[in-house]
């Protein structure tokens, strides 16, 4: 088995117009910048982007927004210092926004990856973000039903990877990357270093079964 792909362009080639794409990262950490740049060049548009943030500055998701490729953002925290491209597109009504509490976002993604039909969480019960959702009282406490969230593709960033798709991470660059790799139908991993042999099994965080292709991108932002 060899899931390695020789370059970023080949790795993102399967992404089509209108696709839903999970993108790992939190703040500037753990974002697959190489894959995002390749996706901008590739040209797919009308994308639904699922990520914690909505980009900052001129790189990453901000580049996709600037290029007008994003129809909808599903995230917990779109507004960060420098999130000008998101704000411009949002104010112009050019991008739809679904704000999801961060833990609910992560767990909805996990539910999709784990084959679950959703879950009940106390998060957001009684607030605006639970409006219109099914609720239930369990042992006197209110819970909100949250549906699984899957995607056509996931773009993730890892530190090390091998040809079987096994991944390991560095510091807080782990964040949403493992769970997003689980939940997408086609997960593409950008790794800082492609291992010559197999990763040490005890060090594998994301097992290769969740990853469809691996591409090396040595730049660590």
């Amino acid at each position: 088995m060899d899931k390695t792909v020789t370059d970023l362009a080949k790795a993102v080639a399967p992404i089509t117009d209108g696709a839903s794409v999970m993108i790992g990262g939190f703040g500037s950490s753990g974002i697959p910048f190489g894959l995002i740049d390749a996706l901008v060049e590739q040209g797919a548009t009308g994308l639904t982007v699922i990520s914690n943030n909505a980009g900052a500055g001129e790189t990453g998701i901000a580049r996709l927004l600037r290029a007008g490729r994003v129809a909808k953002v599903i995230c917990s925290y779109p507004r960060t210092p420098g999130s000008i491209w998101f704000e411009r597109r949002y104010e112009a009504g050019e991008v739809a926004l679904e704000v999801v509490p961060q833990g609910t976002l992560a767990e909805r993604i996990r539910a999709a990856g784990a084959g679950l039909g959703g879950f009940l969480t106390p998060t957001a019960y009684g607030t605006k973000l639970a409006e219109g959702k099914e609720t239930r009282i369990i042992d006197g406490r209110g819970y909100v039903f949250e549906a699984p969230l899957c995607a056509d593709f996931a773009l993730v960033r890892a530190d090390h990877g091998d040809k079987w798709g096994n991944l390991s991470f560095h510091a807080t660059a782990r964040n949403f990357n493992p769970v997003m790799a689980m939940a997408a139908r086609h997960s593409i991993a950008e790794v800082r270093q492609l291992s010559e042999g197999a990763l040490e099994p005890e060090h594998v965080v994301t097992p290769g079964i969740f990853v469809q292709s691996v591409v090396e991108y040595r730049i660590r932002p």
Binding site: Y77, R79, F86, Q102, G103, T123
Partner: peptide, 15 residues
């Protein structure tokens, strides 16, 4: 007109 941003606040306060 201002995009809302919830982050992890709602998860923290329930748990």
């Amino acid at each position: 007109t201002y995009p809302p941003a919830v982050g992890g606040a709602m998860d923290l306060v329930v748990g």
